[in-house]
């Protein structure tokens, strides 16, 4: 049952990008910021990225080492659970495929992954949503180093899921045997977060 609202017509909807915008979203040209707390600022000389398999360290890169890994550029649409979508965003970073390869692993050791970030944020993802070019650790946005407010120096980028899965200030990726909820996922948000199925909240 849908309630029609008297006097509401809405914005003109014949947008050429219409089929690129998931249900319930609107397109913005801004780049809004959403964070649960203060923006952490880790100096590059102290920054490392770790890849963890169970209790053991599978890989660890300093900022300099990370820059020497194969770099990939992609242009993608992003969708935030707070309803904005931003089309054609340009990113550069290291794909999860390349990270796994650089760690000397033939294949991902477990089916799930938890991302850990400066500031204490976490988010969970199925590994199959990260490999095959679907996910990266991004360090550049629109040709420039990623700004701290947007997750710099490095954030996860998984554009086909709601943007809270693209964790800012990422520092450690831990493979897990079983799926576990991260920060927002344990606070009422959807465990998976597919914008095309409008999986915003638990139970959607």
């Amino acid at each position: 049952m849908t309630t029609t609202t008297r006097g509401f017509s809405g914005r003109r909807r014949a947008r050429p990008e219409g089929n690129r915008v998931p249900p319930g979203q609107f397109v913005t040209d801004d780049f809004p910021v959403l964070s649960a707390g203060p923006t952490p600022r880790t100096p590059l000389e102290k920054w490392t990225l770790a890849l963890q398999d169970g209790g053991s360290l599978a890989g660890r890169w300093t900022w300099e080492e990370f820059q020497s890994l194969p770099q990939t550029e992609i242009t993608v649409d992003i969708h935030c659970v707070t309803k904005w979508s931003k089309l054609g965003t340009k990113w550069k970073g290291v794909t999860i495929d390349h990270l796994i390869e650089a760690a000397g692993l033939d294949e991902p050791p477990e089916p799930y992954l938890m991302a850990y970030c400066d500031g204490g944020y976490t988010t969970n993802l199925p590994v199959e949503d990260l490999i095959g070019g679907k996910g990266m650790v991004a360090t550049h946005y629109d040709g420039e180093p990623l700004e701290p407010e947007h997750g710099g120096p490095a954030r996860l980028l998984v554009p086909h899921l709601y943007f809270w899965k693209s964790a800012k200030w990422v520092r450690r990726l831990r493979f897990m045997e079983h799926d576990e909820p991260g920060f927002w996922e344990s606070l009422g948000y959807h465990i998976y977060g597919d914008p095309w199925r409008e999986q915003r909240y638990d139970g959607d």
Binding site: D30, P32, G37, G120
Partner: peptide
């Protein structure tokens, strides 16, 4: 939030909510 961290507030105790564009 940056000023609060600079003043010595515990970052984990600072909760933020921001407007969209």
């Amino acid at each position: 939030a940056n000023a609060l961290v600079g003043l010595g507030y515990e970052p984990a105790r600072i909760r933020t909510e921001r407007f969209g564009p």
